[in-house]
Design a protein around this nucleic acid. Structure first.
Lengths: 253, 253
DNA sequence: CATGTTTTTTGACTCACATCAAACTCAATT
DNA sequence: AATTGAGTTTGATGTGAGTCAAAAAACATG
């Protein structure tokens, strides 16, 4: 709870934090993003069983889905983390997002009944599979579920537009600062430390996500460290001066 | 119809074309994107009247909504064109999209009940206002409408991810080529000429959308013109060599 | 049509980030 | 402890696109 205090004035491009930091349980999964803020009655919660959700495990490096895969379900991440990416025919890849426990993934497939991009596990992970047509059926009966699902999709749109803002009008160090702040807020929203966390993705992945080369990401980290803003230990980050980091987003000092 | 032939092998980052080029009429509007591909029965079409859609006109430069506005409705563009943008606190703006007749706008507001960005008319325009809670209610009764609305939201996500790919891993001329191709396909999808069209937005707007300065956009246009790929007359474009333009997307020659 | 304003084009110059390359770290394996 | 290999850091150098500036074209207005 105290963690929440630390992160004030959320920035436009960051992920809107979830409505609450506590996670509630569906019968099978911790579906923070799907079940929690809906305010479902006990009876409605029971009806969620009709979704017949299945848990699956994935090892680091496993694909959750690939581009072109038939769309069957959306996925709620239960444990672990994933990256999503799209591929260009000439092989260029672009990481479109990092997803952590409690978040929903696979929303790109609804429009065409095929996954447009691919998702792969950054760590050993557990996900809940939500058969999409059952989710649609059920949300016809439970208006609050319907509304909440719409909110999740809309949040995805807002988030992507935030990244467009970042890619289109920020320079390298601003982007990296924004990235770290976003991570920080997402950890805070889940009741984890917003000032000290592991990076489950490589510099390469971060660079791809931010439209930068890995060397540039590394240099930004080093530079922030020199200035005492963060402490970097390869795959773990400690934020030492949040205010300075936030300042760094608006003008690469 | 013949226009469709001209555009082959749609590129990953482009807008998935609508399912059909013909527009059907709801009782009040031409809601291409909302009503058409659903396959509604006559009776269901009539029920759409319950939405009580209202038409409104906007002059060039008018705001359809602004950041922070309360969310009441999504909008179906009937005539004209809009741009959407998000603003950074320090004044930097980023154009997040251009919308033309037949497209749905305002999907960013669902998650927070507030519009995140703003939309303003690039030409004199007419839009249909779709009160969102009525749309939700109705889509509980009409599964095909529900599914179709989900597809529209998902398509927006895919489209934004395409722009992320563009901003993150393409260089200036590739971006401009991709932009022109996307426009071309959108015109084709609406039964208009894909090789000759008006640009309702400024070079500045295009630049902001593509993460480039207006001078860079202008230079790219000029360069394409020198090479005989397009003919530019300030606010109107003619595509002379579609194949070359497509080639230009993958490697800025 | 003359005038002022905005938008677009073009050119010269600069700099942030990419590129290339080499050294270093860390974890896994033998 | 030595070996390997992927991932990361750091330095030296090059270039694509930004910046600044000025001319040209398009547009608006009295």
């Amino acid at each position: 709870m105290a963690y929440f205090q630390a992160v004030h004035r959320p920035l436009r491009f960051t992920v809107p934090p979830s409505n609450s930091a506590r996670l509630s349980n569906c019968s099978t999964c911790n579906l923070a993003e799907l079940c929690l803020p809906v305010g479902l009655t006990d009876e409605e919660m029971q009806r969620l069983d009709e979704l017949n959700m299945q848990k699956h495990s994935y090892a680091r490096g496993d694909y959750l889905y690939r581009g072109g895969d038939k769309f069957r379900a959306v996925f709620a991440i239960n444990r672990g983390a994933f990256k999503t990416r799209v591929l260009h025919e000439d092989g260029r890849e672009q990481v479109t997002g990092f997803q952590m426990a409690g978040e929903i993934i696979g929303l790109d497939a609804i429009s065409t009944d095929m996954h447009d991009g691919e998702a792969l596990a950054l760590e050993d992970s557990v996900v809940c599979e939500l058969p999409f047509h059952r989710l649609e059926t059920l949300s016809r009966d439970i208006p609050s579920l319907q509304r909440h699902f719409h909110k999740i999709m809309s949040r995805e749109i807002v988030r992507d537009q935030g990244i467009m803002l970042l890619l289109g009008s920020m320079r390298s160090e601003e982007r990296v600062a924004a990235f770290l702040l976003t991570l920080s807020q997402r950890y805070a929203a889940r009741g984890l430390s917003p000032t000290q966390f592991q990076l489950s993705m490589s510099r390469q992945d971060i660079g791809s996500y931010l439209g930068l080369k890995l060397e540039t990401v590394s240099r930004a980290f080093s530079h922030f460290q020199e200035k005492g803003i963060i402490a970097v230990r390869t795959r773990s980050i400690e934020i030492l001066d949040l205010a300075l980091l936030q300042a760094g987003v608006n003008s690469s000092c």
